[in-house]
């Protein structure tokens, strides 16, 4: 019986929850540290150089170097155990324990005579007042003692624990190509329908195309050994400009057609002039004749005829 009581008390106290709140407070930064390492994943790059009438692509492979900036600081882990239910548990458990204890210890104060006003089915008199008091006392103790013990434990553990430890945080990350090396292979200029020129082998990591062999061909991507190539810096812009200027700079301006264009749709001619002027960014680009011809056409006085947008564009570049 004694062992059963101990087990019941242990189970009651063991099942009581002791909740805890945990938070982390960040302390001041101690120092910053920069760590560099390579990812070991080599990527193919290409730089673009234009010098009319040539387009030169230089290929190289490079690893990815990652630079991480770490800040080291101290952080404090604060653990606070909840104390709100402890006082109520101690109060309730204390009262119940006191009442139960009084009933059990002071049971001799109650009469031991059976209750002769009742006779049960088995022919027994009713329990004596002492027996009733003892029963209630034990019952109340069973409820009160675990509550009291739980409350005391909660009060004893209701404190704040602080643990300070070093911490590390990644504050900046930068990945750049590094350790470049020339790349050799077969270069392909591809369009929507496939390669537009025969694959050409690089020599010392570079390959050059002339404007005339690219004239009239629609190409959108550069590949080295059938793998896509990442264009470095302004390479994409230079490539786009060379491709856009190619139809115009490989032909000669027709003064008569430009005059007609200026008379019918002068806005379109002005837009075209802006494009040709942008082609001047290509070193050696022969934009002079075009600009002069268009300026002359735009300065030619108009006879006053209304525009006819449906008219064919006389300023269109000639077919290849």
């Amino acid at each position: 019986m004694k062992r059963v009581g101990v087990v019941l008390l242990g189970l009651s106290v063991g099942c009581a929850s002791l909740d805890a709140d945990r938070r982390v407070e960040r302390g001041p930064a101690l120092r910053t540290e920069t760590r560099e390492h390579t990812l070991g994943e080599r990527v193919t790059f290409a730089s673009v150089e234009t010098s009319w009438p040539q387009l030169t692509l230089r290929f190289s492979t490079a690893d990815i170097c990652r630079t991480e900036q770490h800040t080291q600081y101290t952080e404090t882990v604060v653990t606070q155990r909840r104390t709100t239910p402890a006082a109520a548990a101690v109060s309730t458990g204390g009262i119940l324990t006191a009442v139960g204890g009084f009933l059990v210890i002071g049971r001799s104060l109650f009469s031991d005579k059976p209750n002769r006003d009742t006779l049960d089915e088995d022919g027994h008199y009713g329990a004596s007042s002492r027996k009733v008091a003892t029963g209630w006392g034990v019952g109340v103790l069973i409820v009160g003692v675990p509550a009291l013990v739980t409350g005391i434990i909660q009060l004893a553990t209701a404190k704040e624990e602080r643990e300070t430890r070093p911490a590390d945080e990644l504050t900046a990350l930068r990945e750049v190509p590094c350790q470049p090396a020339p790349a050799e292979g077969q270069v392909t200029l591809s369009g929507p329908l496939g390669p537009v020129v025969e694959p050409r082998a690089t020599q010392q990591g570079q390959v050059t195309f002339s404007a005339h062999e690219l004239q009239g061909r629609e190409w959108t991507a550069v590949q080295l050994d059938a793998a896509p190539v990442l264009l470095m810096g302004e390479g994409q812009t230079r490539l786009e400009l060379f491709r856009a200027c190619l139809p115009w700079l490989t032909s000669t301006p027709d003064a008569q057609r430009l005059v007609e264009e200026a008379r019918l749709v002068p806005e379109r001619l002005r837009s075209l002039r802006q494009l040709i002027r942008g082609c001047s960014a290509i070193p050696g680009a022969p934009t002079g004749p075009w600009l002069q011809a268009m300026d002359a056409a735009l300065e030619t006085p108009s006879p006053g005829a209304g525009p006819t947008p449906q008219a064919p564009s006389p300023a269109s570049p000639p077919p290849p």
Binding site: A127, G135, W136
Partner: peptide, 18 residues
Amino acid sequence: AQVFWPLLCLTACSGPPA
């Protein structure tokens, strides 16, 4: 069980045979 145990005891406990 803790709450009803005293009640069970009260109903089960009895005095001497009449």
